[in-house]
Every structure is written in structure tokens, then in C-alpha cells.
Design a binder for these strands. Structure first.
Length: 415
RNA sequence: GUGAUCGUAGCUCAGUUUGGUUAGAGCGCCGGGUUGUGAUCCCGGAGGUCGGGGGUUCAAAUCCCCUCGGUCACCCCA
């Protein structure tokens, strides 16, 4: 990094090929899986009125200190989206699509945080939401869709599952827990005390050793009969699909709006503290929070940057390589024409600029990874033909009439 | 937000402890090794105001301060 006058902002990165190629592939696989399950894409704004997000998680860190907010020229308080569920909900309330409504999305999200392994200020998420049903089958479908995605891209994940109770039992439990923890406040770590004032549920997630005893003695969430039945149903259906999961009563999630089913996807080969590659759950009270009708919902979000990080170790996804490299001697125009024709036939083709020496061009051809090099020089032009060299095989060169070139190449490339 | 650590060619780094002639290596890049042929090999070349700013000194990549950025942990989360 010499002395560039400008560089990318803190916590934000440029992604070059071939890394970007892998990423594209992963995104395509997600889109395909979502469509296969009948989800339609929703393209949302990257920023919203700040209220859309702040309403939804007043006590969360995401809203309290990680919001990338700004004032526009009309003095409106806006925020770059830190997540998309709230945006989806806002769009739903605004346009009222027929329910049950299933959508998927993909795009950049922003959180004003100190960057770290697997954590950036701009990061890419994909996700789905199902609105207008509390059928446990929806929970299961959503989880199995994510599981299928991870399987397709070859990323090992552990599915962690919990139930946070319905809107009412969750609220009741929150009170019980708050009372209990407040009573023992002075025994808690300073960190936990701070968390307690924000969200008692998340104290259960404390990793401070001294808090362990207090946490283990804490009253447990009692699911109502309905909530328990719902949860059992979700589990049963997951089992019927052979989707393995582990239960964890401590799983709480970062946003406050979750109710009933909550889940997380933990990358098995990521040992950094940022090993959650995705998460989601049910949010049956969210619509009302944003001034909408009563409307149940369930969904998840998956962090693509982190997923890619987890994938790096396994390198399961291969990127495309070039098919043909055209080297030319005094025939640049013909080379361009030929490249255009081959591309038309969906043969990926490249040639070099700047009229370089044949030797230089052959070196480029080799480095480009092309399977075949073509030479278009005076001799070939005279005979209306092209020299075809199979780069990955021991010296294998032949002269092919230009009219037969396409067919010849297709045969070589498909062999 | 708290803390640690790093920042020298496009990349990976040496040199910083014990300040001192034109700042090095490997890889990569460009060119050449006779007429139009890739890996390998040989030869040559380009490329750095040592992240930026200030200070100490006869002298700073090397010491001090500030700042920006990277990395990592805590917090939290995707």
C-alpha cells in the first residue's frame, strides 16, 4: 500500500476476482434455492427512516451504537440498514401483499462497529421471510432452506435451536428474570449488570465465569402449552427431514423482536469468535411494533462474508476458467472479430492488447488458464485458417480452417 | 466503546533492539536469450518521499508524540 491519496473507508473492503467469483456463485446458489421453494425476490432500499430500525430494537447494541445514521438534506434522520427484517416488515405494511407471503433478499448491510475477524462495517446478507402464518411448517421450511443452501455450497454448519416463547410468555418470563437478576445484581459482573439494564435475556449469554452460578440458578423459561406444541412441531418436522440440530436454552439472538422459534447457524470450521454465519427466528409481534396489523412472521439472515470465510478452508467451489486465448501477429482486427464470434458461441475468449510479441502473448495465454491458444498470423491468414494449440496437453498444435474453428473448439473443450 | 499488536517495492517480508555512505530479498511485472510459439532455465529492467504529520538529533525506516489504516481479543453479532 504505497501512499494512495484515498483508500477504502474503515471496515470496508474491495473484492477482486477470483474471490468475487466464488461469492457470485454462492449468491446464485442461494437465489436458486429460494426460488425452488417458491420465494420471490424483494429489492429493498439500502436506507430507511431511522425509526424503522430503532423501533424494533431499542435495547439492542445494533440500534444503540452500531447504526450507520445520517441526516439528509431535508433534515430527515435516516440510517443505512443494519438488517433487513425490519425493512421487509415496513414494505409489507406499506404494500400489503397477499399472505402468506414469502420473499427473499440479498444485499449490503451496514453496522458502525470496530472491524474484526468476520466483522465489517459493510457486509453482505441473504435472507428470507415468511409473513402471515404461524404454521410451524413455515419455521421448518425456512430452516431447511438455509440448511440446503449451506449443504449446496459445502459449508458445514451446526444448527442451534431454541424457543423464546410467544409474545405473552416471553414478556412474563422477561419480568421474572429481571426480578431474579436484579435481586442478585451485586453478585453479577459489571458487564452483566450493564446488559441486565438493556435486556435481561442476554445476561443468560454472559461468558464471564463469575456469572455462571447465578445464571445456572436462574428461573427457566416456561413455555405455554401452545408455544410448547409449536416448538415440538417444528422439531418433529425437522427430524422428518433428517435435519440435525442441537438445543440451546441460552440462544437469545441480537434483536429483541424474536418470539418462539429462534435459531442460529454456526460454521463448524470457523474457530474465531465470529462463528455465527446466520440466524433467525419467529417475530410474531414485529408488525405491530411498526404500526402494522397483527401478523406472524419467520425468517433468517445469512452473512455471506462470514460464510465465504468459512468456505476458504475447504475451497469447495471452483471458479470458471477461460476457454480460449487468441494470440495474433499483425492481425488485431481479425482477432477481435474472431473473439466476438467465439463469445457469441459461448466460448469464453480473450486476447491481449498493445500488439505484444507472440512470445509475450503465449505467456499470457498460459497464465490466463485458457485451455486452448489460437495463433492468428500472416501464415494462417493466407490460408484462411488458425493454429490451434492445446495448452494443457503435451505439444499439440494443428492448423484448422477458420470455417471449422467453432466446431473444432467445441469438440476440444467438451472432451 | 475497551485493550493488544502491526504498517518498508504490486505481494510476502528482512533491516528498527545497539540512529550513520546511493533502503534489500523472494515472488510478481516488463524486456531479451536471432527469423512467429506457453511451463522450466539464463540475462537485464522498471518499481519505494520506509502509512501520514510533527518533534529530538550534525544525521531517523530506526528514538518520542499525534493521526490514519490493517489484524486480533473483549463487547456484540452476520
Amino acid at each position: 500500500m504505497a501512499n494512495p491519496k484515498f483508500q477504502s473507508p474503515k471496515g470496508v473492503k474491495d473484492i477482486f476476482s477470483p474471490e468475487s467469483e466464488v461469492r457470485r456463485k454462492v449468491l446464485d446458489i442461494f437465489a436458486k434455492q429460494a426460488r425452488l421453494a417458491g420465494y420471490g425476490e424483494i429489492v429493498l432500499p439500502l436506507f430507511e427512516d431511522i425509526g424503522v430500525f430503532s423501533r424494533v430494537g431499542e435495547s439492542t447494541e445494533i440500534v444503540q451504537k452500531q447504526m450507520y445514521d445520517f441526516q439528509d438534506k431535508d433534515n430527515r434522520q435516516m440510517a443505512l440498514r443494519p438488517e433487513s427484517t425490519a425493512s421487509v416488515m415496513r414494505a409489507f405494511i406499506q404494500h400489503r401483499p397477499v399472505t402468506p407471503w414469502k420473499c427473499w433478499y440479498e444485499g449490503a448491510h451496514f453496522r458502525y462497529e470496530k472491524p474484526q475477524a468476520g466483522r465489517f462495517r459493510q457486509f453482505h446478507q441473504v435472507g428470507v421471510e415468511v409473513l402471515g402464518t404461524n404454521d410451524p411448517a413455515a419455521d421448518t421450511e425456512v430452516i431447511s432452506l438455509a440448511a440446503k443452501f449451506f449443504q449446496e455450497i459445502g459449508c458445514g454448519v451446526e444448527i442451534v435451536l431454541n424457543s423464546l416463547g410467544g409474545v405473552e410468555s416471553r414478556a412474563n418470563y422477561l419480568e421474572t428474570l429481571r426480578d431474579y437478576l436484579t435481586a442478585r445484581n451485586n453478585e453479577l459482573s459489571a458487564q452483566a449488570q450493564k446488559t441486565l439494564s438493556l435486556n435481561p435475556l442476554r445476561v443468560l449469554d454472559s461468558k464471564v465465569e463469575g456469572d455462571a452460578a447465578i445464571i445456572s440458578e436462574a428461573p427457566e423459561m416456561k413455555l405455554s402449552a401452545d408455544d410448547q406444541k409449536h416448538f415440538d412441531d417444528v422439531k418433529e418436522k425437522l427430524e422428518s427431514l433428517n435435519i440435525a440440530y442441537t438445543l440451546n436454552k441460552r440462544l437469545v439472538r441480537g434483536l429483541d423482536y424474536y418470539t418462539r422459534t429462534a435459531f442460529e447457524f454456526i460454521a463448524t470450521n470457523l474457530d474465531s469468535s465470529q462463528d455465527a454465519v446466520g440466524g433467525g427466528g419467529r417475530y410474531d409481534g414485529l408488525s405491530e411494533l411498526l404500526g402494522g396489523p397483527k401478523c406472524a412472521g419467520v425468517g433468517f439472515a445469512i452473512g455471506i462474508d462470514r460464510t465465504l470465510l468459512a468456505l476458504e478452508e475447504t475451497q469447495k467451489i471452483s471458479t470458471n476458467t477461460l476457454d480460449v486465448f487468441i494470440a495474433y501477429v499483425g492481425a488485431q482486427t481479425e482477432a477481435i472479430q474472431m473473439a466476438t464470434e467465439l463469445r457469441q458461441a459461448e466460448i469464453s475468449t480473450e486476447f491481449s492488447f498493445d500488439n505484444r510479441s507472440l512470445k509475450a502473448q503465449m505467456k499470457l495465454a498460459d497464465k490466463s488458464g485458457a485451455k486452448v491458444a489460437l495463433i492468428l498470423g500472416e501464415d494462417e491468414m493466407k490460408q484462411n485458417s488458425v493454429s490451434v494449440i492445446e495448452l494443457r496437453k503435451a505439444s499439440n498444435q494443428s492448423l484448422v480452417p477458420q470455417k471449422d474453428l467453432k466446431a473444432h473448439l467445441l469438440k476440444l473443450l467438451n472432451a
